[in-house]
Design a protein around this nucleic acid. Structure first.
Length: 424
RNA sequence: CGGGCCGUGGUGUAAUGGUAGCACGAGACGUUUGGGACGUUUUAGUCCGAGUUCGAAUCUCGGCGGCCCGACCA
């Protein structure tokens, strides 16, 4: 892609008032645009990042049998009435009374979906009636709407945000927990592939169930959560339920039966994903039962599992940046390579063509009206993992300068050897 | 929802009751090009409403909006 053709521009100044780094850098780079507090447009660059993240999530969800689908954002009142959640107050309600005739009103009672347990459970109850149909799991990647009293910290807490939500359905608690473990492993892979260190954390049950739930937490000072984390075995508990204290020794039993004994420390963190055992709360609300081998009827046991796409993106920027800009992890970068052309006549275009012919994603700074310093500053801000520089100087040696965004080393590489140099 | 701070061209800011100014950006032309270059030139602003005043960006009230702290966060 040619930088000159991207319709957004980078800015040198931070947006007024923004304190969180992800808000500053993502807006400055033209990844996102804040339309309202907690309401963001994903601009072309940011959308590429979001797509990389969702592609990883899709792969891992599909790998554990999740069936992708797409549910409505408009959720009628009857769904939430079934579980008493219409009045929870999280959702943006749409309560319209349209005059149809002089004497009649057409009343609409909807909420913009903030979670979809009710919607999917009602549908599943229409199709599933036998143990032979279970277990199954389905997910969607969709925009969620939550009437946050206080949107904050850029992409970290929004009123409208993209979320992957997976729901699973089982014949027993044991079967659900087995799948729960698979989701846990899949989530670990997702965050690892996204370049995030996310700690599996025991958390409170919330409204759903008395049981514990689990969260994936990324350490960051801007995080809203506080966790107690063992430095040694990485066991973590959310402070909302934890009885641990800083300086204590970790009581976790290791596989060999010994106490871990590692140091517990308190950390602020960002919740990038969570998994919930739901029990039969939702299936019971919709009278969703299956018939077992002997003809007995039982409630379906459920689980739900969420990942916030924008939060993953925001958290990544929070933990991976320097004073000049973002440092994207290889797997979710908008482009693999940022090619800076310092020649007068766009002579770097040949290099660009060669690289895209090899399926390398290249952001090509073809601008001739910008100074070298401005182009370097943009490359640092936008944060692609590899920066290439083509100039009269390098072309004399049939070479291109290669620099990793995360490092300082600059080396000259022959153009014919460039592809090999980029594959690491 | 409570508290604090705030709202001036596209962006960042100055003007504390008396001429709305500066920088950046953006557009044009030219000179430039290894860390945000230079000249000439053009563009564009006091969130909305009411009030006080001879006069309001500035003071008062209300609304809307933003950031932060807290509460809340299936």
């Amino acid at each position: 892609m040619y930088i000159s053709q991207i319709f957004t521009k980078t800015t040198k100044e931070n947006p007024a008032g923004e304190v969180s780094v992800n808000a500053q850098l993502l807006e400055r780079g033209g990844f996102v645009y804040k339309n309202s507090a907690g309401v963001y447009t994903f601009l072309p660059l940011g959308w590429k990042v979001a797509q990389k993240i969702t592609a990883i999530i899709r792969e891992e969800m599909n790998a554990i049998g999740g069936q992708e689908m797409f549910m409505p954002a408009l959720v009628e009142k009857k769904y939430l009435d079934a579980t008493g959640r219409w009045d929870v107050g999280v959702g943006f309600k749409i309560l319209d009374k349209l005059p149809v005739t002089d004497s009649e009103l057409q009343v609409t009672n909807f909420v913009l979906g903030w979670t979809h347990e009710e919607v999917i459970t009602e549908m599943a109850s229409k199709f599933i009636s036998s143990y032979k149909d279970l277990p199954f799991s389905a997910y969607q990647i969709q925009t969620k709407f939550r009437n946050e009293p206080r949107a904050k910290s850029g992409l970290l807490r929004g009123r409208e945000f993209m979320m992957k939500d997976l729901y699973s359905f089982h014949t027993s608690e044991e079967d659900m927990l087995e799948y729960y473990g698979k989701v846990k492993d899949a989530y670990a892979k997702i965050f690892e592939r996204c370049g995030l260190k996310a700690y599996y954390t025991v958390a409170a049950g919330g409204d759903f169930t008395a049981e514990n739930t689990h969260e994936f937490q990324v350490l960051s000072e801007v995080g809203e959560d506080t966790i107690f984390l063992c430095e040694k075995c990485e066991y973590a508990e959310n402070s909302e339920i934890s009885k641990l204290k800083t300086g204590e020794k970790c009581p976790t039993r290791l596989p060999d039966g010994q106490e871990c004994g590692g140091d517990i420390k308190e950390e602020k963190s960002i919740e990038v994903g969570n998994i919930f055992p739901l029990g039969t709360k939702y299936s019971d609300a919709f009278n969703f039962k299956f018939t077992d081998e002997k003809g007995g009827k039982h409630s379906v046991v459920m689980g739900s599992y969420g990942i916030g796409i924008g939060r993953v993106m925001g958290a990544t920027v929070e933990v991976s940046h320097d004073d000049k800009g973002i440092i994207w992890p290889d797997n979710i970068t908008p482009f693999n390579v940022h090619l800076v052309d310092l020649t007068k006549n766009g002579e770097g275009k040949d290099v660009y063509e060669k690289l895209i012919a090899k399926n390398i994603e290249v952001l090509y700074d073809d601008r001739t009206d910008k100074t070298a310093g401005e182009k370097f500053a943009d490359a640092d801000l936008l944060g692609c993992p590899v920066r290439l520089v083509v100039s009269e100087k390098t072309l004399k040696e049939n070479s291109v300068e290669v620099k990793r965004r995360a490092g300082d080393e600059i080396k000259l590489v022959l153009i014919e050897e460039l592809e090999r140099a980029l594959v690491r």
